[in-house]
């Protein structure tokens, strides 16, 4: 369902040439929970941007559900992100001064769906992500970090995406909340969602069923993992 073939990404800034990815290939199947781990500067962020259809590779091919993503233009990439990818960011990235419900409905804008349908779906996703019903009409800036990340997870689920891409989802959270959020991801995976988790922390990566280690723009190690629920 995801296939990368020899992905290369080169940044050129003036005379300086940086090879962020030097030929990365792997496949991820439906229902997998994969961690992509690597130290900063390893190229994992670049890889995440390409997987998230936020950026195009310099060369190589990336297939998502059979679509060749690297050939798409800006609007087609937008449509792909909306329909196939759910994002969870480190900084939560919720709309400020906006209710929880409206934040979750954001990707449904301009979809032509009725307001009732949007409300219904957003509420389902919020419950699914473990958000208490009483908080649905709260403003986003009145929430705790853990609650914000739950809202972000609910938002990532709204279009029933093929993959959920989580970029350091616990980076701004304390240890206890991190565990709760990671449990939420494990729960989503048990329900059949494909999850790709990008992190630099081994503890977090250890929750996944498979770990891909990136170093200096190359896949260093790609192996199944037996998740350890007690580490975090």
């Amino acid at each position: 369902m995801i296939e990368c073939r020899n992905l290369i990404k080169t940044y050129i800034s003036g005379d300086v040439r940086t090879d962020a990815l030097k030929g990365v290939s792997f496949k991820i199947n439906k229902g997998e929970f994969v961690s992509i781990i690597g130290p900063s500067g390893s190229g994992k962020s670049t890889l995440m941007h390409i997987l998230g259809a936020l950026d195009n590779p310099t060369s190589g091919e990336y297939f998502l559900d059979g679509h060749e993503v690297s050939k798409l233009d800006d609007d087609e990439l937008s449509d792909l992100r909306r329909n196939k990818i759910g994002f969870v960011f480190q900084a939560f990235n919720l709309l400020p001064r906006t209710t929880v419900l409206r934040n979750v409905m954001l990707p449904l804008l301009y979809s032509g769906m009725t307001m009732e349908e949007r409300n219904k779906r957003a509420k389902e996703c919020l419950r699914y992500a473990g958000m208490e019903e009483s908080k649905f009409m709260n403003l986003s800036n009145q929430l705790s970090g853990g609650q914000m990340q739950r809202v972000a997870i609910a938002r990532s689920l709204i279009n029933n995406p093929s993959i959920i891409l989580a970029d350091e989802p616990t980076g701004n959270l304390d240890t206890k909340t991190s565990k709760i959020i990671m449990d939420a991801f494990r729960e989503l995976n048990r329900k059949g969602h494909t999850i790709i988790l990008i992190t630099h922390e081994m503890d977090v990566a250890d929750c996944a069923n498979r770990i891909i280690q990136i170093r200096d723009g190359l896949v260093e190690r790609d192996a199944p993992n037996k998740p350890n629920d007690h580490v975090i």
Partner: peptide
């Protein structure tokens, strides 16, 4: 600008 970035990331087209 961050809000615009978020809107784009969740797949809202530039024109909107």
């Amino acid at each position: 600008t961050r809000e615009i970035g978020l809107r784009k990331a969740v797949g809202i087209r530039k024109i909107y």
